[in-house]
């Protein structure tokens, strides 16, 4: 697996107007922020607080989109919608585990971009 299987930083480049320093700044914030948000999602799922899961998925989705993390953004949206409308609840723990594994991989790759 390589970074391009998970994300395309061209989108972030466009969003930051090609400012490399700004790109790195935003990558750093994502690396700091994403594990906290992931933990919040896991906690919400365990406590079956689906609204909270939806809300945190909503937040992480926005940053994933702007960062160009295409491998996770659709799933973040699906988790947001399922949490919000309390649908497909039985599938959520497995999907979250997969989401977690991919996100850890993404963070590792992103750390090497700095």
């Amino acid at each position: 697996m390589k970074p391009s299987d998970f994300y395309d930083l061209d989108r972030l480049k466009r969003a930051t107007g090609g400012d490399e320093q700004f790109m790195k700044h935003m990558i750093r914030i994502f690396i700091d922020q994403a594990p906290i948000q992931l933990q919040e999602m896991l906690d919400a799922s365990e406590q079956k607080d689906w609204k909270a899961l939806g809300a945190t998925s909503h937040k992480i989705k926005s940053s994933m989109r702007s960062m160009g993390i295409f491998s996770l953004e659709d799933e973040a949206l699906a988790l947001e919608q399922d949490g919000k409308y309390e649908k497909n609840l039985e599938t959520i723990p497995d999907r979250l585990a997969l989401f977690q594994a991919k996100l850890i991989q993404v963070i590792e790759f992103l750390s090497q971009e700095l």
Partner: peptide
């Protein structure tokens, strides 16, 4: 903005 990533993004711009 409650999302820190986005908050920083807007602030920087």
């Amino acid at each position: 903005e409650d999302d820190e990533w986005y908050c920083n993004f807007l602030e920087y711009n």
